[in-house]
Write a protein that binds this DNA or RNA. Structure first.
Lengths: 183, 183
DNA sequence: CCTCGGTGAGACATTCTTGTCTCACGTGAG
DNA sequence: CTCACGTGAGACAAGAATGTCTCACCGAGG
């Protein structure tokens, strides 16, 4: 019986998103396979994390494609992006914290590409007059990541309802906490 | 010569904020002391992290006190809080991710107290009509934490200038990315 | 029915980290 | 000066995780 690599990666992502220090043995059990089999398909923990990195990058890229950032207003594009990225939020926040360990040595270049796409989106929104220009695209990008991570954490901790995830993030990122005068 | 516990904790915080998996040996060397001495003062890695937790809670609490959240407008209070919490941002984001490991068992109750203070501040801001009411105080609290962590990370990664830290976070959290009509 | 490929279970060595201990050294107090 | 205390360095054992290997099993395909 051939092993379902995709399913193994998904269960590993689900486990490691919750407990980033989980053992290879725990990862294997979570996937319902033996540790030896896990090692046969992923040379080691590093290789597993790299595979998860590829998966996360791919999912984020898919979300970016699916969001159709350039259709309609930038605001609507951002809302679609947040909805599209929600399923991968846990994996992505795991990878972000894990990446700090790699400290420069052979970091996956996919992140740069994704960062560039997101930053370019914010820049276009600024050029079209939809986004304020006193916040740099780089910061808006990091803030989006931070809010996605905070949202995923808050949902998992039960502090907010899961169904509110897209609304919370989009509203805060777009409108902020201040009550507007026109409201 | 008596060991400067405070200085050891601060260098440990600086190191672990960058690399959360740093060894006890690395922590000791970063503090300029021997590993044996480190163990004499902190029974083990757990005890060290707990001590850092106490330090982080204390620093956050001090920042909350120093911010004088109830003086003047809620917006100004929030800006003062962000300025006051900036020096501890790295330590706090380390502790937040580290806390996910404790998974319920004997979590320091200090975090609940701090969360309650911050959430209460946002609630008061809502009641005074300064903050919008469609975002829950709990989410605004988590979002603040997330943005502080994202800001600390962005500054450390060199993506944004360190001096912009308070402005970036406060402006995004208060006003959001959308360009207001009156601007 | 037989064979082959992939798997699970477990043994094993290796490595890393931790925690403890000992011992020599240096400094400051008496 | 002398002594006691705290420290640094290093040795050491214990534990955990990793990576490799062997072996029995099972199911599919010939």
């Amino acid at each position: 019986m051939s092993l379902d690599r995709e399913q193994v990666l998904r269960s590993a992502a689900a486990l490691l998103s919750r407990r980033s220090t989980a053992t290879m043995d725990e990862v294997a059990r979570a996937a319902g396979i033996g540790r030896a089999t896990l090692h046969r398909h992923f040379a080691g923990r590093d290789a597993l994390v790299r595979a998860l990195e590829d998966l996360g990058i791919q999912e984020f890229e898919t979300a970016l494609d699916a969001a159709g950032l350039d259709e309609g207003s930038a605001e609507d594009g951002l809302r679609r992006l947040i909805v599209a990225v929600e399923p991968a939020a846990g994996l992505l926040s795991f990878l972000v914290t894990e990446n700090q360990l790699f400290e420069g040595d052979e970091m996956n270049e996919g992140w740069d590409r994704l960062d560039a796409r997101v930053a370019a989106f914010f820049r276009r929104g600024q050029e079209r007059g939809e986004f304020r220009i006193d916040l740099t695209p780089a910061w808006l990008t990091e803030a989006l990541y931070g809010l996605i991570g905070a949202g995923a954490w808050a949902v998992q901790a039960g502090r907010v309802a899961g169904q509110d995830f897209p609304h919370m993030i989009a509203e805060l990122l777009l409108g902020g906490a201040r009550r507007s005068v026109e409201q």
